[in-house]
Nucleic acid binder design. Structure first.
Length: 106
DNA sequence: TTAGTGACGTCCC
DNA sequence: AGGGACGCCACTA
């Protein structure tokens, strides 16, 4: 059983209209302090054949990680999030206080 | 095997 | 608020 499988399982649990951070996913996947692995795990996921809502994962700043490696999927991510009702600030950030996923339902 | 890089986070300035 | 340095570990050359 790969640790990445746990990551995918966690991401799949993120409800529509909510987002989670890489660090949050890492912790939930029993990989505290290793958020980079989460990012790499999602990078390995095939966007088309996976049923994983990868677009609901953002960094701790509440922003989408823009990278040339993603070939524009970063812009797609923002579009998908906006389609789910998530609003972006003028600086392109998301209000985590309002949209961050709370597994334990504070 | 060593070195470099990265869908990130935390700390310090 | 914004930017730089360091740490983390898997993958690639």
């Amino acid at each position: 059983m790969s640790a990445y499988h746990e990551i995918y399982a966690i991401v799949r649990q993120i409800p529509v209209g909510k987002v989670a951070t890489y660090g949050q996913i890492a912790t939930l996947a029993n990989l505290p302090g290793k958020p980079r692995l989460v990012g790499y795990a999602l990078y390995r996921v095939d966007l088309k054949e996976s049923d994983i809502p990868w677009h609901r994962v953002v960094n701790a700043k509440g922003e989408i990680s823009f990278s040339s490696l993603r070939q524009g999927t970063d812009y797609l991510q923002r579009a998908l999030l906006e389609r789910e009702g998530i609003e972006f600030t003028s600086t392109g950030k998301i209000s985590l206080r309002q949209y961050q996923w709370q597994p334990e339902s504070v």
